[in-house]
Design a protein around this nucleic acid. Structure first.
Lengths: 215, 215
DNA sequence: CTTAGTCTTGACCATACGGTCAGGAAACGA
DNA sequence: TCGTTTCCTGACCGTATGGTCAAGACTAAG
């Protein structure tokens, strides 16, 4: 193999590659630090250390702490939204809601920091993403509520208030990320194993699906 | 009436009364500020302003910010624990779990700030109350799990994993406090009315009780 | 009234934080 | 090769924060 061969990844020049990579490293570090210390408790120095970059370099890519934070929150919001594709294509509540629970539990496991940042943001009154709550999230919620209501009207599930059912789904699935430390402590200080995650997901699915009158 | 009569409230001297009252005012203000800004984002000056006292006076009653925070978290933990008295005296899951849901929903409505402080503390790795998690909470959890398991063994409810059922209960009820801002935004910017709180509580109860095979 | 103990508070201090900047290094295009 | 743009970073700055302190005001007991 030719050692001078171009790297396999498509790179539009080293400049853009460096920028992309550094922004990614910074965002990853920021997500973790914001999650663990909160917005007020997080410092640019901490994020810089975790990213392995000098602090001034962070300000080169993100002008202010708030701008960096905004980007972190936006990224999480995107993941959140795309998690519910299962909802739309499902023929009924068993596949739709069951699949949604599985998807959100998977996200809680894979992106616990993001979930915590989101929770913090909302708990503090959503100073950064209030507009998103009032537009995108509101529309998204209305759409899923309509789907659930249609299932109810078609007799496919018990007549459960769609809004509060959605809140219950959010609460339970995100709990495993946001309160992961508590769950871990109650698990003898060890993170949940693969089997325990499956058990958690199955329990939530079983109780909810039975609770809305399917299965 | 004698204008010089002793005030009705039992007061062991004005000194103790002043101390008690000031500590209460400070703790109330601190709970709110810690909930809204997080530990790192909260400042002693903010708490002082909200309490209507000079900052130096706060340090007279609570030596450090961390000591004040500790006391706030401890107070919430106490409320948390006593919420489950319904659990022990109940003859079965309908009264036990149904009553627990009602009690925790009531707490979420009455103490939203406390719930948020607790959530923040746990999300940040429980730096202050880790010992409580490992002792008191662990024992408490084991006790309730035993009760639920007994109900399962007696055939009073479906065979649901007690641990994850408890997590589900915590998640759903606390969600209404911790994510109250999001719920309020999705409610047209208005807080939930009495009727809406009742509706939320009833929906949660209905889904869970049906979900564990009672009713 | 006197004295001792408790409460109050403005002024102050050391530190840590977010953010700036100038100047050098590296990549790029011609 | 050379000029231009992008990237990098140590040193620096103004501000805000947690915490201290000393001096005074108030309460209580003898």
């Amino acid at each position: 193999m030719n050692p001078n061969a171009q790297v396999s990844r498509i790179s539009k020049g080293k400049r853009t590659e460096i920028r992309r990579e550094n922004e990614r490293v910074i965002l990853d570090a920021a997500e973790k630090v914001f999650a663990e210390a909160g917005y007020g408790g997080a410092t640019m120095q901490l994020i810089a250390d975790m990213a392995g970059l000098p602090k001034a370099n962070l300000h080169y890519y993100f002008p202010t702490k708030e701008a960096l934070y905004r980007q972190v929150v936006r990224n999480i919001f995107e993941i959140w939204l795309h998690a519910a594709d299962t909802f739309d294509e499902a023929p009924g509540p068993v596949e739709g809601i069951g699949g949604y629970i599985e998807a959100k539990m998977a996200i809680s496991r894979r992106h616990p920091f993001g979930s915590k940042v989101w929770a913090s943001e909302v708990m503090h009154g959503a100073p950064v993403i209030q507009d998103y709550l009032e537009t995108t999230l509101r529309e998204w919620t209305a759409g899923r509520m309509a789907v659930i209501q249609r299932w109810v009207d078609e007799g496919k599930m018990a007549p459960v208030d769609p809004r509060h059912l959605l809140y219950m789904l959010w609460a339970m699935t995100q709990h495993y990320a946001d309160f992961g430390h508590q769950i871990e402590t109650l698990n003898g200080g060890r993170p949940l194993s693969d089997a325990q995650w499956r058990e958690a997901t199955e329990t939530v699915k079983a109780v909810i699906l039975r609770g809305i009158g399917v299965v």
